[in-house]
């Protein structure tokens, strides 16, 4: 019996080439730690990525890895999972790779519900091409391609995933390794496509864009760590989320004020799509950012299971071409 693998065992001999201070380092460390925690088998684990800073990830994991082409990682991962559904497949993508050039494939991956994990590193910018605005950039983002500020409405990764039919949606923060690792474990446990959006700080082109809820001083008041079956509390349990049935909206309430007690706080039900939608949509300006598993509604089977269950012979070669050749009308000469 070999000794259990540690996080270090999941590192490769390749020099990591992200910018110093990039959030990707923290995510890499977190994923390597998570791999050790879940006792992943390097020979049966595959990291698949597209193109972009985040997509260099596979080179730094001592598992199997496939660095593919821009936006198409979901399709490669799909083919791989069909060829071998036993593999543990992790896809790494970014906001440009996954939501711009690859938006179509991500949509179909999520609705098909193939059993794998998708980690979308969202830094709201194109890093590898030197700083252009991305589909998640906030309106007004100044960049080399939008010197006066971007005029586009940004896409919400979580809302996109929910709309696409994803049944597992979670969020985490690059540097919050402990919490992110727990989220990744939940994603790994889920049977289907587990979509995890990770707020990742691009120190060069979009530094501190998330500091409103990631900075130490702001974290307590502006992070809502959700847990299934637990009331939606934050700010050291002094504040909570209530549901206003008249306006059909979530509101922030302070316990003890205006007669609000713990009983009034909305209890998180990760199977409830409406709650997930509202948590995802909470604007950062007036609400805490919802983190953790926002939505988890498992289907009976994943696509890869259904694919082979519906295959006439479950993928086995039971017939012979020579026999099929003779089916139908045959004549002799």
């Amino acid at each position: 019996m070999n000794a259990p693998l540690t996080a270090k065992d999941f590192a490769t001999d390749q020099e990591v080439r992200w910018c110093p201070g990039c959030g990707d380092y923290a995510i890499l460390k977190c994923v390597q730690k998570t791999m050790a925690d879940i006792e992943a088998k390097p020979d049966e684990t595959v990291f698949v990525s597209g193109i972009g800073c985040s997509s260099r990830f596979p080179y730094y994991m001592s598992t199997y890895g496939f660095h593919t082409i821009h936006g198409r990682a979901p399709a490669f991962a799909t083919g791989l999972k069909l060829a071998n559904p036993d593999l543990d497949v992790w896809m790494v993508t970014g906001d440009g790779d996954g939501l711009s050039i690859g938006g179509n494939h991500l949509l179909h991956l999520l609705r098909r519900n193939i059993n794998m994990q998708v980690l979308l590193f969202n830094n709201e910018i194109y890093g590898l091409t030197k700083g252009q605005y991305s589909p998640t950039s906030r309106p007004g983002t100044r960049s080399p391609s939008s010197p006066k500020g971007s005029i586009e409405t940004s896409v919400s990764a979580g809302a996109f995933a929910l709309g696409a039919g994803a049944r597992f949606i979670a969020r985490g923060i690059d540097t919050d390794i402990k919490h992110l690792s727990e989220t990744l474990k939940a994603a790994h446990h889920y049977n289907g496509t587990a979509f995890v959006e990770i707020y990742q700080n691009c120190i060069v082109y979009n530094a501190d864009v998330f500091k409103g809820f990631t900075e130490k001083a702001a974290a307590t008041d502006n992070q809502l760590h959700v847990q299934h079956g637990k009331p939606l509390l934050f700010a050291k349990e002094t504040k909570g989320i209530i549901f206003n049935a008249k306006t059909m909206q979530l509101e922030v309430a302070t316990l003890g004020e205006n007669g609000i007690s713990l009983d009034d706080i909305l209890v998180h039900d990760s199977r409830n799509k409406a709650i997930a939608q509202m948590l995802i949509d909470m604007p950062e300006s007036d609400y805490p950012i919802a983190l953790g598993v926002l939505y988890e509604d498992p289907a009976e089977a994943s696509f890869d299971q259904n694919f082979w269950n519906n295959h006439p012979t479950n993928g086995k070669r039971t017939g012979k071409v020579a026999d099929l050749l003779r089916q139908g009308s045959i004549w002799q000469k």
């Binding site: 698949v48 496939f66 593919t68 082409i69 198409r72 979901p74 399709a75 490669f76 991962a77 799909t78 083919g79 791989l80 999972k81 069909l82 060829a83 071998n84 593999l87 179509n104 494939h105 949509l107 179909h108």
Partner: peptide, 16 residues
């Protein structure tokens, strides 16, 4: 879902 995905899925299958 499209031609690109078909090619990529086939390559993913070969990789597998």
């Amino acid at each position: 879902e499209d031609e690109i995905a078909a090619a990529c899925a086939a390559i993913g299958a070969s990789y597998g």
